Simulated scan of single mutants.
Amino acid sequence: MNLDIISERNEKQSIHYFCILSNDHRYDLTIAYSGHFFGKAMVTSLQSGRMVLLCSEDIYNDYYWAPKLDIQQEDIPEFQDFFWQVLRSGLYLEQY
């Protein structure tokens, strides 16, 4: 094997699946809560296959996450509210 594994970690993650409809768009997201990414949740768009790491401080930096998750401009305010509720809901405890 020509690969060197420099880190390996096994953990049980809390993963939540969301199918969200706006007035004109559908979004399928997974949010995985892990202690591995310094308090950030892994948010993945099932449509685009792209992932971002988000915490509550990132919610209003939509220029960072909206393009990666293919969130349409008109839906960003609603997603900011959604992420605020989901990331602060107590489902995830920051460890770092």
Rank of each mutant, 00 (worst) to 15 (best):
residue 5 I to K: 03
residue 5 I to T: 10
residue 6 I to K: 07
residue 7 S to I: 06
residue 8 E to Y: 04
residue 10 N to C: 00
residue 14 S to V: 14
residue 14 S to P: 00
residue 17 Y to P: 02
residue 17 Y to M: 08
residue 17 Y to R: 11
residue 17 Y to W: 10
residue 20 I to G: 03
residue 21 L to C: 02
residue 21 L to N: 14
residue 22 S to A: 10
residue 23 N to Q: 13
residue 24 D to M: 11
residue 24 D to Q: 10
residue 24 D to K: 13
residue 27 Y to F: 05
residue 28 D to L: 09
residue 28 D to H: 12
residue 31 I to Q: 07
residue 32 A to C: 11
residue 33 Y to P: 01
residue 34 S to I: 00
residue 35 G to W: 08
residue 35 G to I: 02
residue 37 F to G: 00
residue 38 F to E: 13
residue 39 G to R: 05
residue 40 K to Q: 13
residue 41 A to V: 00
residue 42 M to D: 03
residue 43 V to H: 00
residue 46 L to M: 15
residue 47 Q to F: 15
residue 51 M to E: 09
residue 53 L to G: 01
residue 54 L to H: 01
residue 54 L to T: 01
residue 57 E to C: 14
residue 58 D to Q: 10
residue 60 Y to Q: 15
residue 61 N to D: 15
residue 64 Y to G: 08
residue 65 W to H: 06
residue 67 P to V: 08
residue 67 P to A: 07
residue 68 K to E: 14
residue 69 L to H: 07
residue 70 D to I: 14
residue 72 Q to A: 13
residue 74 E to D: 13
residue 78 E to A: 13
residue 78 E to P: 02
residue 79 F to S: 02
residue 80 Q to I: 08
residue 82 F to P: 00
residue 86 V to S: 02
residue 89 S to F: 01
residue 91 L to C: 07
residue 91 L to A: 11
residue 95 Q to G: 04
residue 95 Q to V: 10
